[in-house]
């Protein structure tokens, strides 16, 4: 079992966390002005890197979302960082 570190609650077991997707997967705005390909990228295409991954996670017990850098090879996880307001 992995231990992740919530910026507000500290280190907690992984089952308290929920994956929120790639950091920086911005939602394309503009409804029908958004091309299909761009919308599909947003919905379905993930970075899936081998090595360092920048991700959004939610700590379910406190409800806060934060960013976390994780190594997908060694599974090392840096302490989570609070997201600044308005930061996507």
């Amino acid at each position: 079992m992995q231990i992740f570190s919530c910026p507000f609650c500290g280190p907690r077991p992984e089952y308290e966390f929920h994956f929120g997707g790639d950091l920086g997967n911005h939602r394309p705005e503009g409804f029908d002005a958004v091309p299909d390909q761009k919308w599909a990228d947003y919905l379905y295409f993930r970075n899936n890197p081998k090595g360092m991954a920048r991700e959004v996670w939610m700590h379910l017990t406190c409800g806060e979302m934060f960013s976390m850098t994780r190594d997908t090879v060694t599974m090392e996880a840096a302490p989570g960082e609070a997201l600044a307001e308005g930061q996507p």
Partner: peptide, 15 residues
Amino acid sequence: HAMLEEWRQDRFPAR
């Protein structure tokens, strides 16, 4: 509930 929280924090002035 989780979905509401996610969009509140991601897209709106959370406070």
